[in-house]
């Protein structure tokens, strides 16, 4: 189990651009997207981290940019860490996490079709939930409109 300060100091040392968020329940850090694969590898493999369980992977559309959110925990140490990475809205690309946590295979496929984030080196980046032949528009984005099926209140 690691305390918040230790976690933040460690990660800011590894990733120079990392910024800690205040007032969150769990330690939350925002990192540049390019440093994610290296950080992920370290978080999983370093003995006192052992973040072996990626229990949530999702994306938030902030209209101006997208934010990838990774919720990580360790089944041994039980500490929880939230990593965020901002991506540009028009060309969202981030390295996959599926080589480290296989659960990311499915979760990244979902984010790929719902938000249009492309995951480089993903082994099988296809549509998972949307029907085959779905093109372009990503349903979970804020600017998605479907006049037939969407009901606004």
């Amino acid at each position: 189990m690691m305390d918040r300060e230790h976690m933040i100091s460690c990660i800011t040392e590894w990733v120079p651009g990392a910024k800690a968020e205040e007032g969150t329940e769990w330690t939350t850090l925002s990192i540049p997207g390019e440093s994610w694969p290296e950080l992920a590898q370290r978080l999983r493999d370093e003995a006192d981290w052992q973040m072996d369980f990626l229990f949530c992977l999702t994306c938030i559309d902030w209209k101006t940019h997208l934010t990838m959110v990774y919720h990580l925990t360790s089944t041994r140490h039980r500490h929880i860490l939230v990593i965020k990475a901002d991506l540009p809205a028009d060309d969202a690309v981030i390295h996959t996490a599926s080589h480290l946590w296989k659960t990311a295979i499915f979760h990244e496929r979902e984010v790929f079709e719902m938000f249009g984030v492309r995951f480089s080196k993903h082994p099988d980046l296809r549509l998972l939930i949307l029907p085959d032949g779905w093109e372009g528009r990503n349903p979970m984005k804020k600017d998605f409109e479907d006049p037939v099926n969407m009901i606004r209140m």
Binding site: F55, T58, V69, H71, H107
Partner: peptide, 28 residues
């Protein structure tokens, strides 16, 4: 494990909500 992730902008509705459903990961 069911995870509920609410991102709030301070309004009456959630800005983004994510359900981390157990079945999705188990199926993978």
């Amino acid at each position: 494990e069911l995870g509920v992730y609410i991102v709030s902008e301070g309004g009456t509705t959630p800005y983004r909500i994510k359900f981390r459903s157990p079945g999705f990961s188990n199926l993978s």
